[in-house]
């Protein structure tokens, strides 16, 4: 519990540098031996869409970073069922390892985590 970290991502790719720098926090947390989970809320879900190009001109793509998170033992990428359907998306359109959770379950995910960072 004391080493658990939840990173909440609320911004789509290329909405500034927010997603990329949120992922950096996840990677540093994992490097420090924390148990890191990511929760994608609202527009943040778009970050998980398969088949993204390199993004806005001059910006690095973020999907390759998301795809390699499991190499850093970050295996828990969470999205909320209700939000997925509101965006008209299905799980098979998203990157691998995504876990769909019920909206009612979100408060307990937050409560059971020692450190929550919201980006």
């Amino acid at each position: 519990m004391t080493d658990s970290v939840l990173i909440i991502i609320r911004h789509a790719p290329h909405d500034g540098n927010r997603l990329r720098e949120a992922l950096d926090v996840a990677l540093v947390g994992a490097a420090f031996g924390k148990s890191v989970r990511l929760l994608f809320l609202g527009q943040g879900v778009v970050a998980l869409l398969k088949g993204q190009g390199p993004g806005a001109p001059g910006q690095k793509a973020t999907l390759p970073i998301i795809d390699m998170l499991d190499m850093y033992d970050i295996e828990s990428l969470l999205v909320v069922d209700e939000e997925l359907s509101q965006l008209g998306l299905s799980q098979d359109q998203l990157a691998a390892h995504v876990e769909v959770v019920a909206k009612a379950h979100v408060p307990s995910i937050v409560r059971s985590t020692a450190s929550v960072f919201t980006f």
């Binding site: 970290v5 950096d24 926090v25 540093v28 947390g29 420090f32 924390k34 450190s115 960072f117």
Partner: peptide, 14 residues
């Protein structure tokens, strides 16, 4: 960024 985790560990609320 390690300092951010360190700050989080030392305070009651971030």
């Amino acid at each position: 960024l390690g300092q951010l985790f360190e700050l989080r560990a030392r305070c009651d609320r971030l």
